[in-house]
Simulated scan of single mutants.
Amino acid sequence: MRGRAGGRGASVRAMPRHHGQRSDTGPAEALGGFLAALRPTGAASDRAWRIALAAMLAARHLERPVDLNRVLEMALVRTLPGSPAAIRDALDPDNGLHVHALLLELQTAGTSEARVVHALDAIMDGREPPGRDRFLRRLAAVLHAGDRGRACTG
Rank of each mutant, 00 (worst) to 15 (best):
L62H: 01
G146D: 12
G154V: 07
H118S: 05
D67S: 03
H100Y: 15
A85G: 05
L38A: 09
L103C: 03
L103G: 00
A14M: 11
L106G: 05
L106W: 03
R8T: 12
L91Y: 04
P84S: 10
N95E: 07
L120A: 05
R22K: 07
P129I: 15
L139T: 08
A75N: 01
G7N: 03
A145V: 05
N95A: 13
R138P: 00
L57S: 01
G7E: 06
A90L: 13
D46R: 11
G110Q: 04
P65F: 05
H144M: 14
R13Y: 12
H18P: 01
Q21K: 11
L143K: 11
D125A: 14
L76R: 03
L139F: 12
Q21R: 13
T79C: 02
A75W: 01
S11H: 10
R78K: 10
P129N: 10
R2N: 03
G131L: 13
R138K: 11
R137L: 14
A140R: 07
R2E: 09
P40E: 03
A140F: 07
L80I: 10
L57W: 00
P81D: 10
L120I: 07
R17D: 12
L80H: 03
L38R: 14
E113K: 02
R150K: 09
L102P: 00
R13E: 15
L35M: 11
I123F: 07
P84K: 07
N95F: 14
G131Y: 08
A52Y: 00
I123Y: 04
F34K: 01
N69M: 09
D89H: 13
A119W: 07
V117H: 02
H19L: 13
A90T: 11
